[in-house]
């Protein structure tokens, strides 16, 4: 187990290092960087930056400095505000993004699991067909299309919920729904397949042969086994949340990391782009690791096999 963990950790560090380097060198080869929008910067800012980041030094030295600063958690200075650190920008916009992401994944997977279990147990009935339909829509319709339509019809036309901004619980409803659609669809499809497979397995037949009732079979025997593998789709779901948050925060005007990121893309604020990219990458890598560990914790087969080593 310890060996496995170390190995995973090494991979994680390598991946992050590669992404950090990739970002650094890509930003170096963009023509004119980092002063392509130098017009926006005052002389003072320029000299501060050149000084602080040693931009007049040779590239290898800059690279080393960049990595050192990264280790200290310093992601550089944003172009768009006067001398504000990227780290501060990210920390300040973290709240809404984290809240939105957590809400979406909680509601999405929760209702997705319910939908999936129901449609597996009522296979080939109208319940199953309608939940399949919802899942296909949820998986296929791009989140920004769905968010746009939701905003127009439910927000503007029906006026049920605020159309934009982030000022309280009622502001969270539409963005959460928009962002939760993909997790919901993914979880429901996945759980349905797993549940159907489990219900056909030998140990379910044995449970029937013991005289267990339908309810005991579905919920005492099958559900747990069907839910364990759901953990594996959490990785892709987190990616979908990251992608989704970019567009959904833009659409609903939520002051989160995604919105910040899109804004910095439109105004070529490279330090913010690089910082956010790294953050997303780190998030992704850590989530994948957590998912793997979680899987080991909830599945007794892996738990004990790992423990023995």
């Amino acid at each position: 187990m310890a060996k496995y963990l170390t190995q995973r950790f090494v991979y994680m560090v390598i991946t992050l290092f590669l992404i950090a380097s990739l970002t650094f060198f890509l930003m170096k080869i963009i023509p004119g960087t980092p002063f392509s929008n130098a017009s926006k910067l005052s002389e003072a800012q320029l000299s501060i930056m050149i000084d602080k980041y040693g931009l007049d030094e040779p590239v290898p030295v800059q690279y080393a400095n960049y990595l050192l600063n990264l280790l200290k958690g310093d992601l550089g200075v944003s172009f768009q505000f006067n001398n504000v650190g990227v780290t501060d920008i990210i920390v300040n916009s973290m709240g809404p993004s984290a809240t939105l992401g957590a809400l979406a994944i909680l509601f999405g997977t929760f209702f997705g699991i319910i939908l999936g279990v129901i449609s597996a147990l009522k296979q080939n009935t109208w319940v199953d067909y309608s939940s399949t339909f919802i899942a296909v829509l949820g998986k296929s319709i791009p989140s920004f299309v769905f968010a746009g339509l939701l905003q127009y019809y439910v927000g503007v036309k029906l006026g049920w919920f605020p159309v934009a901004f982030w000022r309280g619980p009622e502001y969270m409803v539409l963005p959460t729904i928009a962002l939760a659609m993909f997790p919901l669809a993914t979880a429901s499809r996945f759980v349905r397949t797993e549940m159907i497979e489990v219900m056909e397995s030998d140990y379910i037949t044995l449970a029937k042969a013991k005289g267990a009732s339908w309810f005991e079979i579905a919920f005492k025997h099958a559900l747990r086994n069907a839910l364990i593998p759901v953990v594996t789709v959490l990785g892709p779901l987190v990616v979908s949340l990251m992608t989704g948050s970019l567009v959904i925060e833009k659409i609903f005007g939520i002051p989160g990391i995604g919105e910040q990121f899109v804004k910095s893309i439109t105004i070529n604020d490279y330090p913010v782009i690089m910082g956010t990219t790294l953050l997303f990458a780190a998030l992704f890598v850590v989530v994948i690791l957590i998912v793997d560990l979680l899987y080991g914790v909830i599945d007794p087969r892996i738990r004990l096999a790992g423990g023995k080593k």
Partner: peptide, 19 residues
């Protein structure tokens, strides 16, 4: 490939386009 799957393609795509 193990390292490549560790990198979210969202990020690679965005970086590449910016460049």
């Amino acid at each position: 490939t193990e390292i490549l799957v560790g990198i979210p393609n969202l990020i690679v795509v965005i970086l590449m386009i910016i460049v």
